[in-house]
């Protein structure tokens, strides 16, 4: 199926990507080609087939509700682009 520029702009917004004009034009072609590939599946008869979410026939395990992690905030925040006083800094959200 062929995508339009409007489709591409909407998907880019959902994916939180700042797609450029030139790239959007490229997506119209290449994503449409990928969709042509995956569209082959529409012809397949899957009536009555149970969807397979993942390979193991298992139920989700539960663990006891106990604290298992130690406080490593400083250690972990060393990877933050901008942090101060234990908080992550971002551009102002509320004027």
């Amino acid at each position: 199926m062929a995508l339009t520029r409007e489709n591409v702009a909407y998907i880019a917004h959902l994916a939180r990507l700042a797609v450029s004009e030139r790239e959007a034009a490229d997506y119209v072609v290449k994503l449409s080609r990928i969709l042509d590939l995956v569209d082959q599946l529409r012809q397949v008869d899957t009536a009555g087939i149970a969807p397979m979410a993942h390979p193991l026939p298992m139920a989700q395990r539960l663990r006891p509700d106990a604290v298992t992690e130690t406080d490593r905030r400083e250690d972990i925040q060393r990877n933050a682009p901008q942090a101060a006083e234990g908080l992550y800094l971002v551009p102002r959200v509320i004027e």
């Binding site: 995508l3 998907i11 997506y27 969709l35």
Partner: peptide
């Protein structure tokens, strides 16, 4: 995200988001 991810990763994120 636009700057941090390369073209193929962005393409797959677009495909995945769409489907």
């Amino acid at each position: 995200r636009q700057e941090g991810f390369g073209p193929e990763v962005r393409r797959r994120l677009m495909t995945g988001t769409y489907v």
